[in-house]
């Protein structure tokens, strides 16, 4: 088991290294010099030269790459070209919005998908099953930012239950923050819940067909007991995979949804940084998101190996 985890961890580090090189090289191709961009058209050459030295832009690309990565490892994301503040602080602030939003949406979608999937699978072919399949088919097709606009229209503009956007900050109280994140989280959760319900349903249908369920019923367990004790546990494996995969979609989705609700999260930070050509911010945020995705994949893999010893042999 330890060997397996070490092997996976090694490949995790390796992908992060390659990803960081890819990101660095891509941003490196950007035409134009950040220092002259920051100082405007009328800047003196020696002022630009000073700023370049201050930002470390006069070093070779390899040296800059190493100092960037070295900084990342120590939690130093560099200094924003535009705001002259540490990127790490900016990112930490924004994470306090984006991360709770993604988790809130993940929680919502699981809370919806689990009972819905079980209901549809245990009543296969019933009206309930058909309506679940129809609704989820629609839920997958709805773009979450459009659904977000509808939510704003109904719950913020017409009913006035929620504000149409903005974030009061966690200082305003936990529930005030949670309230501001509710519409965005619902919008994010809808397509994910639809996908998850369908996976839950089909995975459960598969396990309900298994011989061990028949055995469990034959030894006297009721349908409900067999479902809870045997089928659900085995049906969870594909569901976990999708959950892991969905996290990266949730993070990406959060970036778009933040724009609908004017939430001060990572997404807004990135888009501002792009328009201001604050490339060090773009670089670091993208790297952070890639790290999150790779880490989740790693954790899912390890969780599998814990649940299913056969998987340890393969990789």
């Amino acid at each position: 088991m330890l060997r397996y985890i070490l092997k996976r961890a090694l490949s995790l580090v390796l992908s992060l290294v390659v990803a960081s090189i890819l990101i660095f090289v891509t941003i490196e191709i950007v035409p134009g010099d950040p220092a002259s961009y920051m100082l405007g058209l009328n800047a003196q050459p020696d002022t630009i030269e000073n700023l370049r030295r201050e930002l470390g832009l006069d070093k070779t690309p390899v040296a800059r790459y190493l100092s960037w990565v070295g900084g990342l490892v120590q939690g130093d994301f560099g200094t924003s070209y535009t705001y002259r503040t540490p990127v790490a602080d900016m990112v930490a602030d924004r994470l306090m919005v984006s991360l709770p939003l993604a988790l809130y949406a993940l929680l919502l979608s699981t809370a919806i998908a689990f009972p819905v999937g079980v209901l549809a699978a245990t009543r296969r072919g019933s009206v309930a099953d058909w309506s679940v399949m129809g609704t989820t088919q629609l839920g997958i097709a709805i773009p979450n930012f459009w659904f977000a606009l509808l939510l704003v229209l109904v719950f913020a503009i017409n009913l006035r239950w929620f504000s149409a956007g903005g974030f009061p900050g966690w200082e305003a109280g936990f529930f005030a923050g949670l309230k501001a994140l509710t519409l965005p989280a619902v919008a994010l959760a809808l397509p994910q819940a639809s996908i998850l319900s369908r996976v839950m349903r089909s995975s459960l249908l598969d396990t309900l067909d298994e011989d061990y369920i028949r055995t469990a019923r034959a030894k006297g367990l009721s349908r409900r007991q067999a479902l809870w004790r045997h089928a659900l546990r085995n049906a969870m494996i594909p569901v976990l995979t999708i959950l892991g995969l969905q996290f990266s979609f949730l993070l990406a989705g959060a970036i778009i949804i933040e724009n609908v609700f004017f939430l001060p999260g990572l997404g807004r930070l990135v888009f501002q940084a792009i328009t201001q050509r604050d490339l060090i911010v773009v670089e670091s945020v993208v790297m952070l998101l890639v790290f999150a995705v790779v880490l989740i994949t790693f954790l899912v893999d390890v969780a599998y190996a814990l649940v299913d010893p056969r998987l340890r042999q393969q990789a």
Partner: peptide
């Protein structure tokens, strides 16, 4: 696979 399409788009757009 670790780069969601949106992140790739963000990087390409930045460049």
């Amino acid at each position: 696979f670790a780069f969601p399409a949106l992140l790739i788009a963000i990087m390409i757009t930045a460049v």
